[in-house]
Amino acid sequence: MSKPGKFSFGVFVFVTLFLHIPLAILVISSFNSSKSMRWEGFSLKWYHELFYNSGPLWHSFWNSIIVAISSSVVATVIGTLGAIGLCWYSFRMKKAIQTLTFFPVILPEIIIGVSILIFFNKIGLSLSLFTIFLAHVTFNIPFVLMTVMARLEEFDFSIVEAAYDLGATEIDMLLRVILPISMPGIIAGLLLAITLSLEDFVITFFVAGPGSSTLPLHIFSMIRFGVSPTINALSVVIIVGTALLALSSKNLYSSLLKR
């Protein structure tokens, strides 16, 4: 078997360094006692600042958590039901609904943000955490739906027919056949939805009202205000937090698959 050459190795190393060095610089400068980028000694004062002196930041963090959990639970319920329907039933307008579910995935985020803002304005709904919740459910549904569908497609429709032949009602079948087999997909979809909701900046930017800032919106206003070492400390907390979450959800997911 031929090995990859020096050229592709060179590009790979370049891309990997390109992706990691800026984050490494953030991590190092979060421990710098100076406000500038010049190293003036080790210090944890920016972490102290972050944890004891950043009230608005934590307020927006809790807003993000509230929106992420509520919107991803609703999106998971709606998306899972939709995946079951689209995967195992045929009915009128199925193709149209399927096409509609692709839209939030392929449309640029700004289009969703702008049109949903115009819509809220038209129906006279004032912007708040609730409008952020509605927008987040909307862009999360397709991702849950696709994740659950990918799981359901691994199974044959005959297991559903077998359950019917054995006398199961639709509710029995949903609760005792479909939901258990699709559980790994549902959990994966829920986790994906939480991540996307916590991460979203562009759509939230358009539908957030005064006083309903989420963490990304707060980070955005801090960045616009200028470079602040508190953001460096926050970055490190986020990097470590997401790495831990990703690893634990990976373990959770594989233990669910083994069941």
């Binding site: 984050l23 991460e199 990304p216 980070i219 960045i223 970055s235 986020i238 990097i239 997401t242």
Partner: peptide, 11 residues
């Protein structure tokens, strides 16, 4: 890629 999008811009 896991790191927050805005943090990656900020870097």
């Amino acid at each position: 890629f896991w790191t927050n999008f805005l943090i990656r811009i900020y870097a």
